[in-house]
């Protein structure tokens, strides 16, 4: 059967929703950083170790990498299709008045998130996997120290906070958009999903935003 852009959209929706699910897990893990430093160090390092050892987790992590790549690649393909579909440009364009800014700029928001992810992976994932880290009291790699020290830098905080804002807007449209692509049309449930999507997006965004600020202000003082 012929591939259609709607099939590509389905890939975007499924991978997007998987990433949404992952964000919850990630946030729950990160919330451990808010505990008192002594407990937080052990907890967090133990948790990081857990994530790198388990085979089930390993499979999920590969799905995760694949999702990120597929989400980005298909976004690129679709964007190319769209640019071609537009034909010539309007000389005077006020179409923006009838839709939200973030819904029209998912590509830009996504690109910001992608750049962020590269930095994020390099600083933690790569260091954890391939770098030499000191061990903590329990013998787990001490990722905690790395995290705490990196969030002492103001520019790093700004980078993270801006990325989270981009993520927030991306989620705000992405979550409900995915549900529509998957075929949710019943008005009542569409509304429920929309409200849920809002709550989810706000929670995730503010949750992630809180942690670097907490560390910055608590550990610098």
């Amino acid at each position: 059967m012929k591939q259609t852009t709607l099939m590509y959209k389905l890939v975007m929706a499924v991978t997007g929703l998987f990433l949404c699910f992952f964000l919850i897990i990630h946030l729950l893990g990160n919330l451990q950083l808010l505990s008192p430093p002594a407990i937080a160090r052990e907890q967090f390092n133990w948790y990081s170790h857990l994530l790198s050892g388990n085979i089930l987790i390993k499979i999920i992590s590969y799905v995760l990498y694949l999702s990120i790549i597929a989400h980005a690649v298909y976004a690129l393909i679709l964007t190319r299709v769209n640019i071609k579909a537009q034909g010539s440009q309007y000389v005077y364009d006020k179409r923006g008045q009838v839709s939200s800014w973030n819904s029209r700029n998912m590509g830009i928001l996504g690109t910001i998130i992608l750049i962020f992810l590269v930095i994020h992976f390099k600083d933690y994932w790569y260091v954890y996997k391939f770098g030499h880290l000191p061990l903590d009291a329990k013998g787990n790699k001490d990722l905690y120290s790395i995290v705490i020290s990196s969030f002492q830098q103001g520019w790093y905080i700004i980078l993270y906070e801006l990325s989270f804002i981009a993520l927030g807007f991306h989620l705000l449209h992405g979550f409900f958009s995915a549900s529509r692509t998957l075929g949710l049309y019943q008005p009542k449930y569409a509304k429920v999903v929309r409200v849920f999507g809002w709550a989810y997006s706000l929670l995730i965004t503010f949750g992630f935003m809180l942690i670097p600020l907490y560390i910055y202000f608590n550990f610098n003082s």
Partner: peptide, 20 residues
């Protein structure tokens, strides 16, 4: 849906401008 692609229309990204 296939014909929509064949005609050269883009895909829907749910901005909902059309409804307005």
């Amino acid at each position: 849906v296939s014909q929509m692609d064949a005609e050269g229309f883009g895909h829907c990204s749910n901005t909902e401008a059309c409804e307005v």
